[in-house]
């Protein structure tokens, strides 16, 4: 299955990616078991970059572990912790280590994480980071210096289809594509009708769109996200479906919901693929894929 993430789109298939989060600390046995479990079932594995501003093993190191285990990594790179020197250096390092895909993000703000007193960087923004990747791909750096050997990254970005207000979000979405994003992974979506409306706008651009699927574990989680996570909207019907499930079986309902949505997105050809984020439940991704068949 691992012919490469970029190639998967070329084959016009419905592309599936999942996500692993590097651990805090050096105990990586669980991470490796997730990599082994998922690497042949998906077209790419995103590796988060100090996710939620919590300090962890770097995305690059885990990307390399994925390569060692025969998987296809997607390096997530945020602008929060590195200035333009460090970002470019990280990208060059990733390329020589065999990483071919990069997802460019702004990054959560420092104060939401576990080192809230750290200095936030944000030297570049995600649009400028995408342009930087484009330059490195041409063998030049951001200061227009010629380099000995460039990169050949397949670059992507993110968008929040449920952002409120949506217009400024779409403005940036367009800039990201102009700046070189070839694929887009969206923030979690739960309302397929809303997503269809978003896709009507997004389809005007030459970019591959992968819908973000976050596994619902409990109805409480859905309510929490509605209340606290900007840009995520779980319709009441889904929360009720979760609540109706028997105790101990809530996650099965979540898997059923995720599977059903993936199936609909694929069968109705609404978008080009899905990006599954089963935060903390990576071992259940194969069940989600099974439910989506």
């Amino acid at each position: 299955m691992v012919a490469g993430f970029k190639q998967a789109f070329a084959q016009k298939k419905f592309v599936v990616t999942a996500e692993v989060g590097p651990p805090k600390g050096t105990e990586i046995s669980e991470l490796l078991s997730h990599i082994d479990l998922l690497k042949d079932r998906v077209d790419g594995l995103n590796v988060t970059d100090n996710q939620s501003s919590v300090m962890r093993i770097s995305s690059l190191a885990v990307c390399r572990l994925i390569l060692d285990h025969g998987g296809e990594p997607i390096l997530q790179l945020t602008c929060r912790d590195r200035n333009r020197l460090a970002l470019q250096s990280e990208l060059l390092s990733a390329w020589v280590l065999g990483v071919k895909n990069v997802l460019c993000l702004t990054g959560d703000y420092i104060t939401v994480g576990d080192h809230p007193q750290a200095k936030p960087v944000f030297d570049l923004d995600s649009v400028q980071l995408l342009q930087t990747v484009g330059l490195l791909n041409e063998g030049k750096d951001l200061a227009a210096n010629e380099m000995q050997g460039g990169t050949g990254f397949f670059a992507g970005a993110v968008v929040t289809p449920e952002a409120d207000p949506l217009e400024p979000q779409m403005l940036k979405f367009e800039k990201k594509i102009v700046a070189g994003a070839r694929f887009i992974q969206t923030q979690a979506i739960y309302d397929v009708d809303n997503f269809k409306r978003f896709m009507e706008q997004a389809r005007r651009y030459d970019v591959k769109i992968m819908a973000g699927i976050v596994l619902l574990v409990t109805p409480g989680m859905a309510r929490y996200m509605n209340k606290n996570v900007p840009g995520i909207f779980v319709p009441e019907a889904l929360i009720e479906e979760m609540a109706a499930a028997e105790k101990g079986q809530k996650i099965e309902a979540g898997i059923r919901i995720a599977g059903r949505m993936i199936r609909q997105l694929r069968e109705e050809k609404i978008c080009d693929g899905v990006h599954i984020m089963a935060i903390g439940k990576e071992d259940r991704v194969p069940d989600i894929l099974k439910a989506a068949e």
Binding site: C79, R80, T106, G107, D108, Y109, T111, V112, P120, F122, D125, S126, V127, Q128, V158, V159, T160, A163, D164, P165, P168, Q169, L171, K172, K175, Q187, P230, G231
Partner: peptide
């Protein structure tokens, strides 16, 4: 903007408020 973004909002816009 908390993240001094010069090209548009991040994904944290929350009903016109800042996620930070």
């Amino acid at each position: 903007c908390a993240k001094n973004l010069s090209n548009g909002p991040c994904g944290g816009t929350n009903a016109g408020k800042c996620e930070v």
